[in-house]
Nucleic acid binder design. Structure first.
Lengths: 346, 346
DNA sequence: CTGAAAGCGCTTACAG
DNA sequence: CTGAAAGCGCTTACAG
C-alpha cells in the first residue's frame, strides 16, 4: 500500500503535478475537462494532500493558537468549541495554550510558542484580549490575531465582544423593578475589561432609577469562587444588610448563595442573588441563579473565522489593493431569570 | 531580518548542515569541539528548527490527537492539561478533538482526522478508551494510541486508569459505617467502563458488610446532570425512602441534592448524598459533596508521555530489537469527606 | 490553459 | 567524526 502523493495523482490523471496543485487550490486557468480528470483521480486514489508539505512550501502551519487563562472550565470549553468550529471550516487546526496572565515571562512564553509552533495566527481570549502590551507585541511582530470579549483598543484589529454593560444594566434593573434598593455588587478580576463594563452597567441602572450609589455595598472579587466567598462574607454581615447581591459572574454568585444558605438566610426571600455568564453551575444549584447568557461560542467562532480569512487573503489583498474591513462586532447578551431573585420581604 | 535556517547555522559555524542536524537531534558521532561550535551558533543566531520541515522529512507531524466526549467540562480541561504537559515535555503539540461516541460515522470521522492532520498518535479518553471497535481499527491501521481511564482490553496497549472499583467500595463502606443500610445507587453511562466498576465497588461493599443488595434502589443514569435529576426523582419518592444516595458522579449527585432540597429534605440529616470525581461543583454547593478524587491530569500525562516515547523509539527499537514494556498502570483514588454525608437519623 | 525547474528546511542513506 | 547528494510532498516563479 504505497503512499498517495501529488505525483501519484498527476500520473494517474495524465497531467503535471502543477496542474494537480492548481485544482487542489481552486486556482483559475484550468479547463473544465482537465479539472474533472483530476477530481476523478482524487476520488479513485482516495487522495488527501499532505498539509505538512504544503505548509513547508507556503511557509504556513495552518494552525491557530488559542490563549486563555480563566477559572471557569465551562467558559474555556465554550471558547474552544467556537474556535474549533471556525478552524475546521477552513481546514485549520487549533492549538490550545493555557498560560498565566501575570507570569513574569509572558511575552517570552508567547514568543517561544510562535517560534516553535509556527502558528499562523492567535486568538486572544479574556484577559489576554485586553492586554495592551501583548497586542502591541503581536502587532510589531506582524502576527495576525483576533480578540474575543475585549474592549475597543484600536480600529484595525478583529474583535468580537458581547454587551456586558447592557447585560449588567438589565440584571440590575430587574432587581430594582422587583423593589430592591440596597443592591450589593461583587466586582470581577481587574485585568478583565468585562469587570469595568459590568460595574458600569450596574451604576447606570442605579442612576437611571434614581438610586444612590453606595460604596459600602461594593466588594472586589476576581471571578474565582473563593473570591466570591470572601466578598460575600463581608456583604452578608453588613448592617443594614442589602436585600440583593449582584456578582460579576456565576461562580462568585454561587459562593454567595452557599454562604447565605450556611447563614440560614433564605434565597430569595431574605436575599436575592444574581450572577453573570450562565455557567452550568447557575442551573445546577438550588435556587437556580438569575444571570446573563453570552454567546461565547459564537463570539469565538466569528473571531477565528475572520482571523483565518485575513490570513488566507493576506497575499491576494496585496495584489488586489482591496483592504477589507476588520471585523468589530458587539453581540447582545440575554437575561435569564431563575429562582434566586424575587421581591424583597416587606 | 532574514529567516534563520539550518543553512545559516551551518555556514556560521563553518560545518555542514548534516552536522548541524546531528547536534539538533542529539546524535552521537560529533566531536565535542564541533558540538560546542554549533551550539554556540544556535544561541547567537537565535535559531529554532522548523518543525514543519522536520516533519516533512521524517514523515511526522509531532502532533498528538486527544479524543473526548464527556459532559463534564472540568474533567475535559483536566485531561487536556495532563496531555499538554506531556506533549510540551517532548516538543509535541496537542490537537483536541471532541466528537460524539454514538455518531454513525465515528470511524470515518477518526479516519479523516488521521488523514488530514497526519497525527503521530492518539490519546483515547472515556468513553473512547473502552471502544473496542475503535481500538481494533487503530491497531489495524498501525496508529499508536494510549488509553486513559479504561478497562483492560488486551496486553499490549498503553493504558493508565484509576481504581474506580476501590473508590466506590470505600465511599459505600463509609456510608455503611455511618449506619446506612438502604443506600441507593445511580449508575453512569453504560458505554463507560467506569460505570460497571463503580457499580461493582458498591456491591462488593454491601456484600462484605452483610447488607442485602436491593435492585429497587438502583437507577440508570448517564453521568449528565439531567439524568441524575431523573434518577433522583424516582429514588427520593421510594417508600420506604433510602437513607443515602451514592451517585456515580458529582453532577448526578448535585442533581439529587438539588431535588432533595426542593423537596424540603435536609441533607445530610434526612438523606446522605455522595458523588464521584471531585468535580468543582462538589465543593461549590452546600452542603459540599462527599466524593472520590481521581488523579486525572496525572493519568493523562503518564499515558501521553509513554505514547510519545513509544512513537519516538519506534525506529530505534527495530534496530535494537528490544521490545519495551507497554505501560499498564492503575493509580489510587482518594476519598474526600464533606458535609453531605452523616449518620442516618435514628 | 499547461508544465519543467527550483525551492521550502529539514533528514535519510551513503561515502569517506 | 564529517559531508555531498537526494528526497520528503507540496508551491512559487517563470516560460510557453
Amino acid at each position: 500500500m504505497k503512499k498517495i502523493t501529488i505525483n501519484s495523482v498527476a500520473s494517474y490523471a495524465g497531467v503535471s503535478k502543477k496542474t494537480v496543485s492548481r485544482v487542489l487550490n481552486n486556482e483559475p486557468n484550468v479547463s473544465d475537462a482537465t479539472r474533472e480528470k483530476v477530481l476523478k483521480a482524487f476520488k479513485e486514489l482516495d487522495y488527501t494532500p499532505n498539509p505538512i508539505a504544503r505548509g513547508l512550501a507556503r511557509n504556513r502551519s495552518f494552525i491557530i493558537g488559542c490563549l486563555y487563562d480563566n477559572p471557569s472550565k465551562s467558559y474555556i470549553t465554550r471558547l474552544q468549541s467556537g474556535a474549533l468550529a471556525a478552524c475546521h471550516e477552513h481546514g485549520f487546526n487549533l492549538l490550545i495554550h493555557p498560560c498565566e496572565l501575570r507570569a513574569e515571562a509572558l511575552l517570552e512564553n508567547i514568543e517561544q510558542l510562535l517560534q516553535t509552533s509556527r502558528l499562523d495566527g492567535l486568538v486572544l481570549t479574556p484577559p489576554f484580549s485586553d492586554h495592551a502590551e501583548l497586542v502591541a507585541f503581536l502587532r510589531k511582530k506582524g502576527v495576525p490575531f483576533a480578540r474575543v470579549a475585549s474592549v475597543k483598543l484600536d480600529d484595525d484589529s478583529i474583535s468580537v465582544r458581547s454587551n456586558d454593560e447592557q447585560g449588567a444594566f438589565e440584571i440590575t434593573e430587574l432587581l430594582i423593578n422587583m423593589g430592591h434598593k440596597d443592591i450589593a455588587f461583587i466586582k470581577g478580576h481587574p485585568d478583565h475589561s468585562a469587570t469595568e463594563q459590568r460595574f458600569n452597567g450596574y451604576r447606570r441602572a442605579l442612576k437611571q432609577h434614581g438610586i444612590e450609589y453606595q460604596e459600602r455595598l461594593v466588594e472586589e472579587g476576581n471571578f474565582s469562587y473563593h473570591s466570591g466567598a470572601d466578598s460575600a462574607r463581608t456583604i452578608l454581615h453588613l448592617n443594614p444588610r442589602p436585600t440583593a447581591v449582584f456578582a460579576s459572574n456565576d461562580y462568585m454568585a454561587a459562593a454567595a448563595l452557599k454562604l447565605a444558605t450556611q447563614m440560614n438566610l433564605k434565597v430569595p426571600d431574605d436575599i436575592s442573588i444574581a450572577g453573570f455568564d450562565n455557567a452550568p453551575i447557575a442551573r445546577h444549584i438550588w435556587p437556580g441563579l438569575t444571570t446573563i447568557a453570552q454567546p461565547v461560542e459564537e463570539m469565538t467562532r466569528l473571531a477565528v473565522d475572520h482571523l483565518i480569512e485575513q490570513i488566507n487573503h493576506a497575499t491576494d489583498e496585496q495584489q488586489e489593493g482591496e483592504q477589507r474591513q476588520p471585523l468589530q462586532l458587539t453581540l447582545e447578551a440575554e437575561l435569564i431569570t431563575r429562582e434566586s431573585t424575587a421581591a424583597p420581604k416587606a
